[in-house]
Nucleic acid binder design. Structure first.
Length: 280
DNA sequence: AATGGTGTCAACCGCCGCGAC
DNA sequence: TGTCGCGGCGGTTGACACCAT
């Protein structure tokens, strides 16, 4: 998928990356780490601009990337964060481990926008759409999974009637896996019917206690008031110093077990073992 | 089977902020 | 203070996949 390869006047290649180029880039970064991106193509033997190398690495080759569609819990988090931050995809991506801003942006534009419209929510303002709005198909079910709450602190340009979609708190059971079907109608229904146990299931969480020990996950799911009080300008990394020390002393497999799912591409595919990334 | 419409997403483009000088 | 280089960000593009007719 992508564009046809081409070169500009300076002989810099554009278009889709080949496996050979990927291998060169990965090999270089594993050996040298991420340094001056401008120097990377020259040193790695690539006819690409540094920007292209950086993008390829951060959006596709990084070993800590999750693959596949966003699950319902991640999607809900994106909606919540978007209500707070607007189109600041990098800020949103920073709160979703293993996801890139580009991925989230694409997912928003192709899936979530439509889903919100079907739910009767304006994807730009997060306001409920007017009832006489032909685009509005808001559900009337009072058991609707999401609570539409009045926000007291909202992005610039928001109106007095701005609402934020907030996920229900996670509970302790996990009954069935939820689908991330791309079918918009069934997807909406699933979304509305999915209970909070499904949500925790989506992140591989079996119970509240099971993620209490994971500082990042527990941060993501702790009191939703945190989301309402979220202030991007003063936000700090949610780990305590102790957590951070613990994190740094573990391998990436221990800290990020979902990365093991990525091993069939991006690491072992290129002849590297996971030790390479521990060394990094 | 052929055609046209729509969806998906990797990749590019242009702008901006920041630090160095 | 102004300029430059760099990295990062968000918006957009366009090739391919998929589906409906």
């Amino acid at each position: 998928m992508g564009r046809q390869p081409c070169c500009d006047k300076l002989g810099v290649k554009k278009g889709p990356w080949t496996a050979e180029e990927d291998k060169k880039l990965i090999n270089f970064i594993i050996t040298n780490g991420q340094c001056c991106w401008r120097a990377v193509p020259k040193l790695a033997g690539l006819r690409r601009c540094g920007k292209s190398c950086r993008l390829r690495w951060t959006n596709y080759l990084r070993p800590d990337l999750k693959r596949g569609l966003l699950n319902d819990a991640e999607e809900q988090l994106v909606i919540d964060l978007h209500a707070r931050l607007g189109n600041r995809w990098s800020k949103i991506a920073a709160r979703l481990p293993g996801r890139t801003d580009n991925e989230i942006k694409n997912h928003w534009n192709t899936h979530i926008k439509k889903k919100l419209l079907k739910m009767g929510i304006d994807p730009v303002t997060h306001q409920t759409l007017q009832k006489d709005d032909p685009n509005s198909q808001a559900p009337k079910d009072k058991d609707h999974r999401h609570q539409l709450l009045q926000a007291d602190e909202l992005p610039a340009g928001s109106s007095d009637h701005h609402v934020v979609v907030v996920p229900a708190p996670a509970v302790s059971t996990c009954s069935s896996s939820s689908s991330s079907s791309s079918s918009s109608s069934s997807q909406t229904d699933d979304h509305q019917n999915m209970n909070s146990s499904d949500e925790s299931c989506c992140l591989g969480i079996n119970s509240e206690s099971s993620y209490e020990n994971d500082p990042l996950i527990s941060f993501l799911f702790r009191d939703t008031n945190d989301l309402l009080n979220f202030n991007d300008d003063t936000w700090e990394f949610p780990f305590s110093d102790q957590d951070l020390d613990s994190f740094c002393n573990k391998s990436w497999e221990e800290n990020c077990p979902w990365l093991l799912d990525c091993q069939d591409f991006g690491v072992h595919d290129f002849g590297f073992d996971t030790q390479c990334f521990n060394d990094m």
